[in-house]
Design a protein around this nucleic acid. Structure first.
Lengths: 153, 153
DNA sequence: TTCTTGGATAAGAATAATTCTTAATAACAT
DNA sequence: ATGTTATTAAGAATTATTCTTATCCAAGAA
């Protein structure tokens, strides 16, 4: 669920997206700005369709393809992260702080998990033979509190 | 890539699949047995299509739908694990020992990673407020040695 | 052995998510 | 203001997966 207030950016965020587009040599179009706003105000992990649906209220002609294309661009630029958590569906994350995810196997809800001690733990040496690790992402699977209560009734 | 030798099962594995099907109350059909063989002899993380393609050499009429259906069944029975690593494509894993994955961001190759020390580390307490964790899966992203060499040339 | 029954399968249609093609549009530099 | 070029909208196309349905087949009953 996206939040339902009208997406608004503070000047700092506006400067950020301006600078990022300039540095990347791409144009700051109306569509890119609005999709950026949606991402910054989303409190969960929206799919491209979530963003498109919400955005249509303000921009009725925006194409779903533009949303997909822009999210892919943002992922490349490091503004958003594409997650492969759900079955056959990409979710997007704007929380760029190091964090991990809890996924409820029943309702598929995704919650952010912070574990800085783990983030700073050295990886086992054997991995250097496989390749060079640039990032780590932990997925915790189980049942969320809401689904636990339901199954306990 | 699936291995190219003819898939053969040892008696132990055959007993295992027999017992699992019986316990689950489902029939051990020819298709299920052959798909199980493919999984047991695959050394990587095959997609449904990989398995179907390879299996067609021995069973020309097998339907891709049967492969999907059977893999879903095996996932439910705990014989295989469905992985959401790739974009828009499910991969399957028969390595049922606790392990994690290294994914090369360049060539998308997936390698198994073992890290028992991490597996036995207690999770942060805060997670109990989110839900009950049943399994953990770590994804390490980066560049594999082959892609590192290529990019270094 | 033949019959019956129900689960499993093949074939192909249907669906869902995503990406591609193309012509029109709009951002930005000049 | 104008031209250049990236970007967009629209809808078609593609890809992966699942569904529908008629058929098949294995195992137990007669």
């Amino acid at each position: 669920m996206m939040n339902m207030t009208n997406a608004e950016l503070n000047d700092q965020d506006l400067d950020q997206i301006r600078r990022i587009c300039e540095e990347a040599g791409i144009k700051l179009t109306h569509q890119r700005l609005e999709i950026f706003k949606e991402l910054m105000t989303a409190r969960d992990h929206p799919s491209a369709e979530d963003i498109h649906r919400h955005l249509q209220k303000r921009m009725p002609t925006v194409a779903i393809d533009t949303v997909y294309r822009t999210l892919a661009t943002f992922d490349e630029l490091g503004i958003a992260r594409r997650l492969h958590l759900a079955n056959n569906r990409n979710l997007f994350d704007t929380n760029l702080a190091p964090h991990h995810h809890f996924i409820c196997d029943a309702c598929r809800k995704v919650e952010d998990v912070y574990w800085p001690d783990f983030d700073s733990t050295a990886l086992p040496e054997e991995i250097s033979a496989i390749g060079q690790v640039r990032s780590r992402h932990l997925e915790l699977h189980g049942l969320c509190t809401a689904c636990l209560e339901q199954s306990g009734e």
